[in-house]
Amino acid sequence: MSLKLKPFSPLDGKKEWELIQKIGEGENGFMNDGFGIPFESFDGYILKNVEMSNGINLKSHLVPQTSYWLTDGETLMGYGKIRHYLNEALLKKGGHIGYCVAPEFRGEGYGKELLKLLLERARYKGIDSALITCSSGNISSQRVIQANGGILQKADENDHWYWVHL
């Protein structure tokens, strides 16, 4: 297994679109904003994400965010997002990192590896401590975060907030 992160790129196409559609709308707090878009509009979605990673055309409530595919060779297994810094809204929900593994790869340790790789990239981007939030009922994600050094800061009936010191 040689898992790698590959940034979203204007060269992304059908297999990347198919992965996003398989993941669905998102669950447990992960927002899959590419779900349901027609393939003909996918290049615009990718361009928007590439621009977002460079802070171009950001709406006032957004922060720069870089999105990555998790790959094993030519196989796409999931994707994740790193927000370059936090605003008030992201401190409440979302944090620095969001991630999701495709349904057919869940429960096999890929979430743990995906988060590990995203944390390495976050450190490279100058983030010293990363906030990761997850739904209170998402025990799998809590275990993934804890396995990557996540320290529970607070929890309520809906969400958990973890900090990972990089």
Rank of each mutant, 00 (worst) to 15 (best):
S135R: 15
L118Y: 06
L118R: 12
G94R: 00
S141G: 03
R121D: 11
R121V: 11
Y110G: 10
I145T: 04
G107W: 02
E120C: 11
G94P: 02
K92E: 13
L118T: 07
I127E: 00
F105E: 03
V101R: 06
G107N: 04
Y99S: 05
G107K: 07
I132E: 03
L118M: 11
G109D: 11
R121N: 12
K93I: 10
I97A: 01
S140L: 10
R106D: 09
I127Y: 00
G98A: 04
E113A: 12
K116E: 01
G149Q: 02
A147D: 10
C100M: 14
T133D: 01
N138H: 11
S140V: 13
R123V: 13
V101K: 06
E113G: 10
L115N: 08
C100F: 07
S141P: 01
A122C: 05
P103H: 01
K112G: 08
V144G: 08
D128V: 09
N138G: 02
E108L: 15
Y124G: 14
Y124N: 15
I139V: 15
I132R: 09
K92Y: 09
R123F: 11
R123I: 11
K125R: 12
Q142A: 15
S136A: 15
V101Q: 06
G109Y: 08
L117E: 02
Y99I: 04
G95Q: 07
L114W: 03
S129H: 10
G94M: 02
P103L: 05
S140P: 12
L131M: 11
Q146L: 10
L115M: 11
E104Q: 08
R106L: 09
